[in-house]
Design a protein around this nucleic acid. Structure first.
Lengths: 215, 215
DNA sequence: GTCTATAGCAGGATAGAC
DNA sequence: GTCTATCCTGCTATAGAC
């Protein structure tokens, strides 16, 4: 119930390195030995603290991934608080900034999106947890913000597709950073992130910039 | 050099089941035993035909994934041939249809995108191959088609971001079919795919549909 | 080309000393 | 709570019969 400091830090180190390794390599590609070596503790520590490897993964998701998602959501609302909350561009910019610039370090952000993308391709028990406790409330909140701005409020499916499309860009430009960097020819530095946010806002609001005669 | 039919079919069965299993579970989660059992052949067959597990994966990517990508590209160009090739909506619709409806069965399409997404998260040697032989030429071709329609032809980065944003939606709505189905409340049937293509075209051309006073 | 048998090793998990 | 030692299962890969 009240673990002493030493056990708490071992437990936390395990969660920390587990997140990094599971994100980079995927659940099956990481061995418990690799995790405990990286956390500078004994092989048996995983079983002592979490019972088994699978439960470590679930605890990692609950205690680290979901709290990060919460930080992003909080950042989104703080971004919005300082702006016109009823304008669609404010909402989308607040959203894009929370995800692409946001409160996370570049490393944290990469791991966060790698883990989520892995769950999207091959959902585990963690996905159900994330879907009900994080994604659904977030989609609801986002829907409430955006619906007043949308013209087709009657069509629930179209509204959802619009929101998911914005999310798809945010996800893509985060989890596919390595190949995107290769394609555009430079790294994800701060100026580029600013341009990326601007691009997402503009694309979401009016699509690609078209010459008048080619629509 | 000229394998008889029997060996060819064993080899092909191996490639076929390997693709399905690697796509669904990821490289490390699939054992050679599982593959050879599913292909109804012997454990040693993988080593006889491909040397080792890793080489099987690479051959699978080269012989199955890339030929599928080629079929999608061909479909894109056929879609385009029947329409106004200079209109941006034609180009985007041809693109979205090639990927979302296209020449693949639903199962093939799912595997195709799962494999690509796995390579995006954690690139292997296959990614380099795909990047140079498939993605780059495809981006070039797409760029040539779309650039004449875009108004900011001077800014290479903005052009790329626009193209990547369209691609991000196509990828997302394919690889995340399961969660998207849950969110929208029904399966990816043909009518929905039509609506999805229309949505992607419209979103790409003009973004979310806004009420006049909320921009 | 296909099979069986097995070498050789790495994996998750546990028992029990400290 | 942390460690060492160990069990046992399952893995990749290969040798060699057919």
């Amino acid at each position: 119930m009240s673990p002493d400091n030493k056990s708490a830090t071992t437990r936390n180190r395990l969660l920390e390195v587990a997140e990094a390794l599971f994100a980079q390599k995927g659940y099956d590609a990481v061995s418990v030995r690799e995790i405990t070596n990286a956390a500078r503790c004994n092989l048996a520590a995983v079983n002592y603290h979490f019972g088994n490897k699978k439960t470590l993964y679930m605890h990692m998701f609950r205690e680290r991934w979901m709290s990060r998602a919460q930080r992003i959501l909080t950042c989104f609302e703080e971004n919005l608080a300082g702006r016109d909350e009823t304008s669609s561009s404010s909402v989308i910019q607040a959203l894009a900034e929370a995800f692409i610039k946001g409160p996370l370090t570049d490393e944290e952000r990469l791991y966060h999106f790698q883990l989520m993308t892995r769950e999207l391709i091959k959902p585990t028990d963690a996905f159900e947890m994330v879907a009900t406790e994080t994604m659904r409330p977030f989609l609801e909140k986002l829907g409430q913000r955006l619906k007043p701005c949308l013209s087709d409020t009657g069509d629930e499916e179209r509204t959802l597709l619009n929101i998911l499309s914005i999310i798809s860009m945010v996800i893509y430009f985060n989890f596919a950073r390595v190949p995107v960097s290769k394609i555009i020819g430079h790294a994800y530095d701060e100026p580029f992130k600013d341009r990326l946010v601007q691009h997402i806002v503009q694309f979401s609001l009016s699509g690609i910039p078209l010459r008048e005669d080619t629509r």
